[in-house]
Amino acid sequence: MHTIDIQSPHQPPRIEEEPNQQLENLESNQPHTTKLKSKKLTLIPLIFLIFFEVSGGPYGEELAVKAAGPLYAILGFLLFPFIWSIPEALITAELATAYPGNGGYVIWAKQAFGPFWGFLMGSSKFLSGVINNAAYPVLCVDYLKIVFPVFTKGLVRYLGITGSTLVLTFVNYTGITVVGYAAVALGVVALIPFVLMFCIAIPKIHPRRWLHRGQKG
Rank of each mutant, 00 (worst) to 15 (best):
A89I: 13
I161C: 02
Y173K: 05
A68F: 08
A67L: 05
P203M: 05
H10S: 09
M121S: 04
W84H: 10
G217D: 13
Q111G: 08
L46C: 12
A64L: 09
Y59L: 12
G175Q: 04
K145E: 11
G214I: 02
T165H: 01
A89F: 15
I205R: 13
Y158I: 09
D142E: 11
S124D: 07
S164H: 01
S85L: 14
P70A: 14
L166D: 03
K35P: 00
L120R: 00
V184Q: 02
S124M: 11
I91K: 03
G163F: 06
H2M: 10
A89G: 14
A98K: 11
Y99V: 06
C199K: 11
A68R: 00
G56I: 01
E18Y: 10
L191C: 05
V171I: 15
A96M: 06
Q111F: 00
G187Q: 02
V184R: 00
A135N: 02
I161K: 03
P87I: 06
Y158V: 10
Q30A: 15
T97D: 08
E62C: 01
T169V: 02
P58E: 10
G76D: 04
T42F: 09
I44C: 03
T33R: 12
G129N: 13
C140H: 01
P31D: 14
Y143A: 06
L159H: 04
I15A: 13
K35S: 12
N25E: 15
A112C: 07
P87S: 12
P149S: 07
G101R: 00
I161G: 00
K153R: 15
K125W: 06
V167Q: 04
N133C: 04
Y173F: 15
R209H: 13
R14N: 06
R14E: 12
A73V: 00
V138Y: 05
Y136T: 01
K216F: 12
F82K: 07
P193C: 02
